[in-house]
């Protein structure tokens, strides 16, 4: 097999673009899950963000406003989820699935009339000096703003969880809401904020699909990206840096299998298409096997209902 025909520079550049939607959605969901809430509605929030972002960008002519709208509407959808699960104490798994169903319908309704419309293009932001470095410049420093923003978000979330008091509180709520409540923290309010942050990130991820990666609006265009984002969170064992690894690995496999086809390397296509999923599972198994049986990694209070009984 001759792999020399695969160009590493374009591979890396393409995988960064391909991974950004799931990266954004996954880092948001990580924060949600860290607070002890599982929101399976990522797909629904993403697709809502994809259409509202698209509508916003088309209406204003500015992708920046598009992304803003997407983040707001994602947060709005998340608020609905939060209200049901946190105030009305509904089951998180079922509510999340319902949110996905609702979001798919809502987006399809909002999107009528936006098919075939061409959105304003999101400019590429060549980072001065760095983008001029041969090879590395094109690989890493010649993308649009959202790619960098997603990377900055990873670092911010990592730092927030690791070094700040807010991060400590968030984790405490996620590990034991009763203890956190006893210490005087507003469990529900903290969780609501986390949930809405997650929704905003999912909305951004969706808008990145409809405004940059594709870019167009089409019904059901997220095509399962939200579910992949959820899987990446578990894959990453709730560690921000591993979200980056997981998302880029997944995006990389997706792009690589297409590149292998273009390069006419004789590998069975139908099995190659499965590769991103199978390899994600395998890596996950290796990682969990290495950690040993005692390790869980999930926030202890995940999916558990909190109700202050006093």
């Amino acid at each position: 097999m001759d792999l020399s025909s695969i160009d590493l520079v374009t591979l890396v550049a393409a995988l960064m673009v391909a991974s950004t939607p799931i990266l954004l959605a996954a880092i948001g969901e990580l924060v949600v899950e860290k607070s002890g809430v599982l929101n399976l509605g990522v797909e629904g929030m993403m697709i809502t963000g994809a259409i509202t972002g698209f509508m916003g960008a088309v209406a204003t002519g500015s992708p920046v406003f598009g992304f803003l709208f997407a983040a707001l509407s994602g947060a709005g959808m998340a608020f609905l989820f939060g209200f049901l699960t946190q105030y009305l104490l509904s089951n998180q798994v079922a509510t999340g699935l319902a949110l996905t169903l609702f979001g798919l319908g809502l987006s399809s309704m909002l999107g009528q009339g936006y098919q075939g419309v061409r959105p304003p293009s999101t400019p590429r932001l060549d980072i001065p000096v760095l983008s001029d470095i041969p090879v590395l410049g094109q690989m890493f420093f010649s993308h649009d703003l959202m790619v960098y923003l997603s990377l900055v978000l990873i670092v911010l979330v990592w730092a927030l969880l690791k070094f700040t008091r807010a991060g400590l509180i968030l984790r405490a709520v996620g590990e034991s809401h009763d203890a956190a409540h006893a210490l005087g923290f507003k469990v529900v309010r903290i969780r609501m904020l986390a949930i809405m942050f997650g929704g905003a990130c999912a909305g951004l991820g969706g808008a990145y699909l409809s405004l940059v990666r594709v870019p167009q609006w089409a019904d059901g265009m997220t095509a399962g990206a939200g579910w992949i984002a959820l899987a990446i969170v578990v894959f990453a064992s709730w560690k921000p840096v591993w979200i980056l690894v997981g998302a880029y690995l997944f995006g990389g496999m997706t792009v690589l299998q297409l590149k292998l086809q273009v390069a006419n390397i004789p590998v069975p296509v139908e099995y190659l298409s499965m590769a991103p999923f199978v390899i994600t599972i395998l890596v996950m198994v290796v990682v969990s096997a290495l950690r040993g049986p005692g390790f869980v990694g999930a926030p202890a209070a995940l999916t558990k209902v909190f109700h202050a009984s006093n």
Partner: peptide
């Protein structure tokens, strides 16, 4: 069809 989907979502909510 989208309206039906929203309707189902609302029923669940």
């Amino acid at each position: 069809a989208a309206a039906i989907q929203i309707f189902q979502g609302m029923l669940l909510f």
